[in-house]
Lab assay of single mutants.
Amino acid sequence: SQHQEELPPPPLPPGWEEKVDNLGRTYYVNHNNRTTQWHRPSLMDVSSE
């Protein structure tokens, strides 16, 4: 059986914070524009500005 090492997730872009809601779900807060989202932001998402 193949065992895959879990890679650590990439660092969050500046201004982002990973949080967990009261149901144990992980979400991400963008403090730059005060938004939240479910999927993890990547540095590539942000660098397109």
Rank of each mutant, 00 (worst) to 15 (best):
D45W: 03
R34Q: 12
V20S: 08
R34A: 13
P9T: 07
L7Q: 02
H39M: 15
E6G: 06
P11K: 14
G15P: 10
H31V: 12
P41Y: 00
T35L: 11
W38L: 12
H3P: 05
T35H: 12
P41I: 00
N33Q: 04
P8L: 07
K19T: 04
Q4C: 10
W16L: 02
R40H: 07
N32Q: 10
P10A: 09
W16K: 02
P14E: 14
Q37V: 06
W16A: 02
R40Q: 08
L23I: 08
P8G: 09
L7G: 07
E6N: 15
T36L: 01
Y28R: 01
G15D: 06
T36E: 08
Q37M: 04
Y28P: 02
Q37S: 15
W38Y: 15
E49Q: 03
K19W: 00
R34W: 02
P8W: 04
M44S: 14
P11M: 13
P8C: 08
V20H: 13
D45Y: 02
M44Q: 10
Y27G: 01
R40L: 06
P8M: 04
S1H: 03
E6Y: 15
G24W: 01
P8D: 10
P14W: 06
T36D: 01
S48Y: 06
V29P: 02
R25Y: 06
G15A: 12
E5G: 00
G24S: 07
W16T: 07
K19H: 07
K19D: 02
P9I: 05
P10G: 10
G15C: 07
G15E: 01
T26L: 09
L7Y: 09
N30L: 01
D45G: 14
V46G: 14
S1C: 03
V29K: 00
N33E: 07
Q37T: 15
R25G: 07
E17C: 09
R25M: 11
N32K: 15
V20N: 09
P10V: 13
E18V: 08
P13V: 07
E18G: 05
G15I: 01
T36G: 01
G24Q: 07
P14I: 15
P9L: 07
P11Q: 14
D21S: 11
Y27H: 06
N33I: 13
G24E: 04
P10Q: 06
P41H: 01
Q2H: 11
Q2R: 01
H3K: 06
T35C: 12
P10W: 04
W38S: 15
H3Y: 09
P14G: 10
R34Y: 07
W16R: 02
L7I: 15
E18A: 09
P8I: 15
V29T: 06
V29M: 10
D21N: 03
V46E: 13
P10K: 11
E6I: 15
Y27M: 07
E17V: 07
D21G: 02
M44H: 15
V46D: 13
L43N: 13
E5Y: 11
P41S: 01
P11I: 05
H3A: 04
T26E: 04
N32L: 07
R40V: 06
P13M: 12
Q4W: 00
Y28I: 01
E18K: 14
P8V: 12
W16I: 02
S42C: 05
P11W: 04
Q4T: 13
S42D: 12
E18D: 03
S1I: 00
E6P: 03
P8E: 10
P8F: 04
P10E: 10
V20M: 09
P41E: 01
G15Q: 10
H39L: 10
N30A: 03
S1P: 01
D21P: 00
L12V: 15
P13N: 06
R40M: 05
D45A: 09
H39W: 06
P13W: 03
E17A: 09
P11H: 09
W38Q: 15
V46A: 13
S42R: 12
H3W: 00
E18C: 10
L7W: 02
R34P: 05
V46T: 13
E6H: 06
S42E: 14
N32C: 07
W38R: 11
S1W: 00
E18Q: 06
H39T: 14
Y27T: 08
P11S: 11
S48C: 08
E49K: 00
V20E: 11
S47Q: 14
M44I: 08
T36Q: 09
G24K: 08
Q4Y: 14
R40K: 13
E17N: 02
R40T: 03
Q4M: 10
P11E: 09
Y27A: 04
L43T: 12
T26N: 09
L23G: 14
M44V: 05
P14S: 14
V20D: 08
V29N: 02
G24M: 05
H39Y: 07
N22F: 02
P13E: 06
Q4L: 05
E6W: 02
N30R: 02
W16N: 00
L43M: 13
G24R: 05
P13H: 03
L43K: 14
E49M: 03
T35D: 04
T35W: 10
S48Q: 15
H31G: 08
Q37E: 02
E17P: 00
S47L: 05
W38D: 12
P11R: 14
S47P: 12
Q2G: 01
S47K: 07
P13D: 06
H31C: 09
S1Q: 00
H39D: 14
G15N: 09
G24T: 03
R25E: 14
M44R: 13
W38E: 09
S42I: 11
P9A: 12
P9H: 09
H3S: 07
P14T: 12
E17T: 08
S47A: 12
S48M: 06
V29C: 09
Y28E: 01
N30Q: 05
W16H: 00
P8Q: 13
E6C: 07
P13T: 06
H31F: 10
D45L: 08
Q2F: 05
P10L: 09
N33M: 15
S48E: 15
R25S: 13
E6A: 04
N33C: 09
G15L: 06
S42W: 04
V29Q: 09
G24L: 03
T26C: 08
W16Q: 02
P10Y: 11
V29L: 10
Q37K: 01
T36N: 06
E18R: 06
D21L: 00
T35V: 15
E5S: 15
L23Q: 13
P8S: 14
L43R: 12
Q4P: 06
S42Q: 14
G15H: 07
E17I: 09
Q37A: 09
P10S: 11
Q37H: 00
E17L: 05
L7V: 11
S47C: 10
Y27Q: 07
N22D: 10
M44G: 11
E18P: 05
G24C: 04
S48F: 05
D21Y: 00
T26A: 08
T36I: 02
N32I: 10
V20I: 05
P9R: 13
E49H: 02
